[in-house]
Design a protein around this nucleic acid. Sequence first.
DNA 1: TTCCGACAGTGGGGTCGCAAT
DNA 2: ATTGCGACCCCACTATCGGAA
Length: 308
Amino acid sequence: MTATLTDRYFSDENWVYERKLDGVRALVVRSEKGVELFSRNEKPMTTTYPELTRALRGQSRPGLVADGEIVAFDGSQTSFATLQARLGISDPVRAEAVGVPVFLYLFDVLVLDGQDVTRLPLRDRKVLLRDAVDFTDPLRYSAHRNTDGEKYLRDACEAGWEGLIAKRADAPYRAGRRSDTWLKFKCVHEQELVIAGYTDPTGTRSGFGALLVGYYESDSLRYAGKVGTGFDDRTLIALRRRFDELGTQHSPFADPVRERGAHWLRPELVAQVGFTEWTRDHRLRHPRYLGLREDKAPTEVVREQVGR
DNA sequence: TTCCGACAGTGGGGTCGCAAT
DNA sequence: ATTGCGACCCCACTATCGGAA
């Protein structure tokens, strides 16, 4: 089951609200033989997180299938960037030697004591889950609220969380399906960025591949990464036409920008861009194009501070 | 008939591992 | 030693199509 992004937030007593965790999705299978962990794409992760496998073996009964998220922390925030140090490592000894502690937050149960419970309402499954596992670290029960979704979201964003997941309280678990019974309420960040280049399109793509965007720091145009989604075909072609009058030989960026198929533009256009956060390398994470800001002077575009 | 969910295809940042340079 | 590439994680979004409503 995966959640659908929405910006129409609501409070409804028939829904529950959980913290949106920034880690990797994990399906737990605890049988008589032992414990297995699988990724969202059904890739085995059992040996990548040996401490979680051990904990599940000791703190749960056989005949369990549960759903959750593996996370690492940076301070009080769940941090995908921190977790990334562990992602590709399948040797259990090396994995633990990395020294990044991980936790498994469980939020749903599909099979309990060998019995399929997916058809029970979500609230009932959560009650069963809470009693099915001994929740001491590194295993944690993903808490939820039963009301006040909108207020909870405001508090969540204030606290620097990624957002919330809203789930219909009476809905069954539908394996592998995208569903409007699970909704993502994300804390949104957006700001203006200067368009100072673009990359070539590939395949069937029209116009261009991605925008190369930046912001001013003093008089330097700092590179903030690429924006390659959010355009329809008409916009791709219309923007490309405007680029043709703005072409220039040299990169306007103060930072070295090594992107394949890059073309430079005089920094005269300003785009509104949505994104989730700034990465450690000062790039946009999950960027998408929202529109042109004809009203904004490029020289006024600076990096706006977002939470944390 | 219209609408929705699933899929394919484009694009992003970052990490790891491996092959080519 | 460095570079480039694909395969993974995390994703956003558009276009298309077939079946559900």
